[in-house]
Deep mutational scan, measured.
Amino acid sequence: HNLTITQGKLFFHYNPKLCLSEIHKMEEVSGTKGRQERNDIALKTNGDQASCENELLKFSYIRTSFDKILLRWEPYWPPDFRDLLGFMLFYKEAPYQNVTEFDGQDACGSNSWTVVDIDPPLRSNDPKSQNHPGWLMRGLKPWTQYAIFVKTLVTFSDERRTYGAKSDIIYVQTDATNPSVPLDPISVSNSSSQIILKWKPPSDPNGNITHYLVFWERQAEDSELFELDYCLKGLKLPSRTWSPPFESEDSQKHNQSEYEDSAGECCSCPKTDSQILKELEESSFRKTFEDYLHNVVFVPRKTSSGTGAEDPRPSRKRRSLGDVGNVTVAVPTVAAFPNTSSTSVPTSPEEHRPFEKVVNKESLVISGLRHFTGYRIELQACNQDTPEERCSVAAYVSARTMPEAKADDIVGPVTHEIFENNVVHLMWQEPKEPNGLIVLYEVSYRRYGDEELHLCVSRKHFALERGCRLRGLSPGNYSVRIRATSLAGNGSWTEPTYFYVTDYLDVPSNIA
Score class of each variant (00 low, 15 high):
residue 389 E to M: 15
residue 378 E to R: 06
residue 310 E to Y: 15
residue 456 C to E: 04
residue 312 P to Y: 13
residue 217 E to N: 15
residue 298 F to P: 06
residue 454 H to Y: 15
residue 326 N to P: 13
residue 472 G to S: 07
residue 414 V to E: 01
residue 414 V to W: 02
residue 362 E to L: 06
residue 501 V to M: 05
residue 275 Q to V: 09
residue 494 T to M: 08
residue 277 L to W: 11
residue 440 L to V: 09
residue 485 T to Y: 08
residue 360 N to F: 06
residue 280 L to R: 11
residue 358 V to W: 05
residue 384 Q to K: 01
residue 237 L to A: 06
residue 457 V to R: 06
residue 450 D to V: 06
residue 262 S to F: 13
residue 217 E to V: 05
residue 441 Y to S: 01
residue 310 E to I: 03
residue 507 V to H: 01
residue 317 K to H: 14
residue 335 A to K: 11
residue 233 K to I: 05
residue 318 R to A: 11
residue 466 R to L: 08
residue 430 E to W: 03
residue 367 S to Q: 11
residue 501 V to A: 04
residue 268 S to G: 08
residue 433 E to I: 14
residue 310 E to P: 05
residue 500 Y to V: 10
residue 478 Y to H: 10
residue 497 T to P: 00
residue 270 P to C: 02
residue 396 Y to V: 01
residue 384 Q to F: 09
residue 411 V to C: 11
residue 300 P to M: 15
residue 472 G to Q: 03
residue 379 L to A: 04
residue 366 I to N: 00
residue 317 K to S: 12
residue 275 Q to S: 06
residue 276 I to D: 09
residue 418 I to T: 12
residue 423 V to I: 07
residue 350 E to I: 05
residue 440 L to Y: 12
residue 263 A to V: 11
residue 497 T to K: 04
residue 316 R to G: 04
residue 265 E to Y: 01
residue 412 G to V: 07
residue 220 A to I: 10
residue 203 S to Q: 03
residue 442 E to C: 13
residue 261 D to S: 12
residue 432 K to M: 06
residue 412 G to S: 14
residue 261 D to R: 15
residue 321 L to C: 15
residue 484 A to R: 00
residue 498 Y to I: 13
residue 248 S to T: 05
residue 492 S to T: 08
residue 321 L to Y: 10
residue 352 H to T: 04
residue 305 S to Q: 11
residue 325 G to C: 15
residue 349 P to S: 11
residue 311 D to S: 15
residue 289 F to D: 15
residue 323 D to W: 14
residue 270 P to L: 04
residue 503 D to Y: 10
residue 231 C to I: 02
residue 340 T to Q: 04
residue 449 G to P: 09
residue 278 K to A: 13
residue 287 K to H: 11
residue 470 L to Y: 01
residue 278 K to R: 09
residue 205 P to T: 04
residue 434 P to K: 05
residue 344 S to M: 07
residue 450 D to L: 04
residue 308 G to T: 09
residue 473 L to D: 01
residue 343 T to Y: 10
residue 478 Y to C: 00
residue 365 V to W: 03
residue 371 H to K: 03
residue 488 A to F: 08
residue 280 L to I: 13
residue 227 E to D: 07
residue 385 D to I: 10
residue 385 D to R: 05
residue 306 G to P: 15
residue 276 I to L: 07
residue 397 V to D: 03
residue 342 S to K: 03
residue 392 S to K: 02
residue 301 R to S: 09
residue 413 P to K: 11
residue 388 E to C: 14
residue 404 E to I: 04
residue 467 G to E: 02
residue 321 L to K: 15
residue 410 I to V: 15
residue 453 L to G: 07
residue 477 N to K: 08
residue 428 W to V: 01
residue 391 C to F: 01
residue 296 V to P: 11
residue 506 D to M: 10
residue 480 V to M: 13
residue 305 S to T: 10
residue 268 S to P: 13
residue 303 T to W: 12
